[in-house]
Nucleic acid binder design. Structure first.
Lengths: 146, 146
DNA sequence: GATAATGTCTATCGTTTTGGTAGAGTATAC
DNA sequence: GTATACTCTACCAAAACGATAGACATTATC
C-alpha cells in the first residue's frame, strides 16, 4: 500500500511548479535542490510528466520547467495515477479482470473496491492550487517567526 | 498503492478459516486449493499468521489450521497491517519520522495522512464474521440457482 | 557564430522485494 | 510404526526500485 519515491517526487515537483505558477521557468537543479531529489532522477520524472501533459519545458538559457495547466486543474490523484497507475489496492477490482476464479462470489473484491474509492476520494479532491496556497502561507509564517 | 500477493493470500486464507469456524481443522492443501494459492507459499503465510496470533494449528493426522479467535474479533485491517506493515501510503506520516527536511512545512504530509486514515477506516471496519456470512450466502444462492 | 546554460534521450546498474520452490525434520492419530 | 499432517530453513529467478552516466540537441546572449 505504498507510494514509490517516483510518485512522491512527481507530486513534490508539481507542487513546486504550482507555487511558481505565472513566473519564469524553474530549472531542474533548482527544483531538485528545493525538494531534495537526485537531479538525474528528477530529470526523468519531469520528462515523463511532460509526456503526461502536466508540465512544459523551455530549452536553452533561461530554460526550465513550467506547469502546463492552472494549478486548480491538477489534482494529486491525477499525478499519482499517471505515475503509479490505478489507485486500487489490487488488480481484481478493475473491469473485465479475468485472473480470478469465482469473481462474482468474491466478497473481498467489494472491500478492495471500497478502499480504492476511499483513496480516490481523498486524492481527487486535492488540487495543487490549494496546496500551493497553503505552502505559501507556511513560508510567510516562517519569515515572521524568525 | 498495491497489496502484495502475500497480503491477498493471507486475507483469503483467514476468510476461508472464518467460514469454517467451529468445525474441524482445515489442511493446507485444502485451503490452497480452495483459494487457488501455491501450497508451499501458503504454508509460509500460515506459519506467519500463526506467529501473529491469528490462527492455530494441529499437527499429525486430522491436523490442519483453525482460526485462533472468533471471526468477529478479526478485521481485514488487522491482517493486512500484520502482513504488509502500516497502511499509510508513505513513511513520512509516521510519528517521529526524521527522513524529510521541513516536515512541519510539508502540506503533502497532511494529504498522505488523510489517505492512510481513509484506508484504515475501510479496512478496520470489516470483520471476517461479516465476510464469512456474506460468503456463505453467496454459496447458498449458487446452489439454488443451478 | 561561439559559448554557456539549459533540457532530451537511452542505456546501464546495484539492491531489494516479490513470489515462489525444495527438502529435511517433527508431531500425532490410528 | 506408518501415514498424514505441520515446521523450519534455505535457496532462487524475475521484476521493481532508485538511481547514475554520458552523449546529444536547443537556445539566449555576447
Amino acid at each position: 500500500m505504498k507510494l514509490t519515491f517516483k510518485g512522491d517526487y512527481a507530486v513534490k515537483a508539481i507542487l513546486n511548479l504550482s507555487v511558481h505558477y505565472g513566473n519564469s521557468p524553474v530549472t531542474i537543479p533548482d527544483l531538485a535542490k528545493r525538494s531534495d531529489i537526485p537531479i538525474k532522477f528528477l530529470e526523468q520524472i519531469l520528462l515523463n510528466l511532460k509526456r503526461g501533459g502536466f508540465v512544459e519545458s523551455r530549452r536553452g538559457k533561461v530554460g526550465g520547467y513550467l506547469l502546463a495547466k492552472h494549478p486548480s486543474k491538477i489534482t494529486v490523484g491525477d499525478v499519482v495515477r499517471f505515475i503509479e497507475g490505478p489507485l486500487d489496492p489490487i488488480e481484481c477490482v478493475q473491469d473485465g479482470y479475468k485472473g480470478c476464479r469465482d469473481i462474482k462470489k468474491c466478497v473481498l473484491r467489494e472491500v478492495w473496491l471500497k478502499v480504492g474509492k476511499a483513496i480516490s476520494h481523498v486524492l481527487d479532491n486535492v488540487t495543487f492550487e490549494e496546496l500551493a496556497k497553503k505552502s505559501k502561507k507556511f513560508d510567510a509564517a516562517y519569515v515572521y517567526q524568525i
